[in-house]
Design a protein around this nucleic acid. Structure first.
Lengths: 341, 341
DNA sequence: GGAGCAACTTAAAGCGCTTTAAGATGTGGG
DNA sequence: CCCACATCTTAAAGCGCTTTAAGTTGCTCC
């Protein structure tokens, strides 16, 4: 019943134990286990055998401390965002290919970005990949002086950090143009809050609308990054009586919230109103949502991000770089010609 | 333009530097910085000053290696699940309160549970919290022999691990009873796949339906944990011609997928059909979804999970324990009396 | 047969911090 | 005035691994 620990708390085997078991020095054992060149095949075999027999697993903390390089990339994400989840998956893969490992640090209600970043720095990360961070540009610049920083998905005006992002304004503009071609003129935008990313998308919307001439009065509803804000916007639109013929939202989450409220009110999408999101995250791709949205090209973004890290770390690049990936409108089933067309 | 690094790559200050700056030994500095008793107030002040002046931050790897205890709890999560995201937030908070820190390891397409767990073990985690793991019971038991393991959200038959979970079968039964009271008899269940959790919920459904007498024919549709499976189930139901009056799904994600397809087909919820989910994660609570669902009591679950860890680590408990939290039906707006009632 | 090498192997010095036991200092009592 | 004792302080020994410079060997070749 009661599982008392045995008398000997069975220590984890250490490298020394493996070396002893194999009858070689710890130096050889270490070299063999890391696949480093040097040891002959006889030694290799004996060490590998010994390690297997003992069930040896190297201690990361010790190895980290002793190693010159940690080969660790720190990633700061918001655990609530499905888009971040997808980016993390992709970054994991890309990092793997370059022989880097990831340390995840998440932003939560009670754990700010600053704290998340500090944990990573203290963990010997050689570089930081920040997903849509909201830290001020100066702080990001200061961080980059300690360790290469790659900011994903938001512009950082004149700061000394690498940036990999999609052209937010252009993305929204594409959405607007797509709608305009279909014949829409009364288009409303649901905003994404006070962040830099939100500002870029909002600006893109306003400029694109002006290009449509006097008919293109840009209307903007307040909002943020969550489903709820889209839902609120939908209720506001419904309450106002006259619906626009199309809505563009800050991101997919918001679009999904909006869609849902519209559907519940019996508004046909895209028959009565068209909806476009932003991100092309997992949400938009769900077959039943099938949201027309602006792709952030997550695979390309993460590839560039990891490449940027590797170049600074292993390639000796020292100047900062901004990679702006052109966004791509993904037309699915939430957009169509306006009712009267 | 080009930010060349200065000639001196400015090493991070080490404890030794702080000690030197303060004119004390590294021992004293270490003691002060960790708030350990011993050093007098004069020493304290000098060390703290010096540390601040140098911008000192302790190196986690080194501290981890030297420290007797790591005070690290490893958490394995699926980065794609919004419910896991919520659990992680809560675990973070609870762990903080007990002076433990978290190491996150995520399961992705290309990174299995085994790999996630190994990373944590190698990182000196003193205990593991596994969110809805799918590893076989024996493997979990073996892990527990290395380090205390708490499995959250799924039963582990006769294995030597702590388990904290909600009574899945009872939860689904509550959902069925709620529907039965409203007058429903034709209730369909959308399954969650081959896992242990899915089996428990499915069993609960079947038993609860039998209790309704001959009218309660349990119908089960295949599915999994994603939105898509709920959507597929909805299409299957719509295609079959005769809809049940109510559907219970494996989880909230599935329910949301189902709801969405129903809404698009103009089926009124709960007018024509009632829907109940499971988890009460962030999704269900969205005001526009407002899903009737079975709560997993995430706050209570995580509290118990962290308590279990702390008891084993600091409290000397050695027998394994299973905490089964009673589920709680959260009635929102997706359930109502059947059409004819 | 010995110099010169290539191919391995290993001793030993850390990595930056924690911790323990021993040393220094000061205090009050006998 | 000296000793016992409480209070600080610190030297030094690790934690478990990596890495480099300094060995060993065993060959080949002249």
């Amino acid at each position: 019943m009661v599982d008392r620990d045995g008398p000997e708390p069975v220590r984890r085997p250490r490298l020394q134990d493996v070396a002893a078991e194999a009858g070689v020095s710890t130096a050889s054992a270490s070299l063999v286990l890391r696949g480093a060149p040097g040891p002959g095949s006889a030694t290799r075999e004996r060490v590998l055998d010994a390690a297997a027999r003992l069930g040896y697993r190297p201690d990361r903390a010790a190895s980290l401390l002793a190693r010159r390089r940690s080969r660790l990339i720190g990633v700061v994400m918001d655990v609530r965002s499905t888009f971040h989840a997808q980016l993390v998956e992709d970054v994991h893969e890309a990092a793997d290919e370059h022989g880097y490992d990831l340390v995840l640090s998440t932003v939560t209600r009670t754990r700010g970005e600053e704290r998340a970043v500090e944990t990573l720095l203290d963990s010997r990360c050689e570089a930081l990949v920040l997903l849509g961070p909201e830290l001020p540009a100066e702080r990001l610049g200061a961080l980059d002086r300690q360790v290469p920083v790659v900011v994903v998905g938001r512009p950082v005006p004149s700061a000394g950090v690498d940036v990999v992002r999609v052209a937010d304004d252009e993305g929204v503009a594409q959405a607007v143009e797509h709608l305009a071609e279909l014949g829409h003129r009364r288009i409303t935008y649901v905003d994404g809050g006070r962040g830099v990313i939100a500002a870029g998308r909002r600006g893109g919307f306003e400029r694109a609308m002006r290009r449509l001439g006097p008919a293109g009065q840009p209307r903007v509803l307040p909002g943020d990054a969550g489903e709820e804000s889209g839902a609120r916007a939908a209720r506001a639109l419904l309450g106002a009586g006259e619906l626009p013929t199309a809505v563009v939202t800050y991101n997919d989450h918001s679009a999904v919230g909006l869609l849902d409220v519209l559907l519940r009110s019996g508004v046909d999408v895209p028959g009565a109103i068209s909806v476009v999101g932003f991100d092309d995250g997992p949400l938009a791709r769900l077959a039943h949502i099938d949201l027309t949205t602006v792709s952030q090209e997550s695979a390309e973004l993460t590839r560039h991000a990891v490449a940027a890290v590797v170049e600074r770390l292993d390639g000796g690049r020292s100047e900062r770089r901004e990679v702006v990936v052109p966004p791509r409108l993904v037309v699915r089933s939430t957009t169509g010609p306006p009712a009267g067309a």
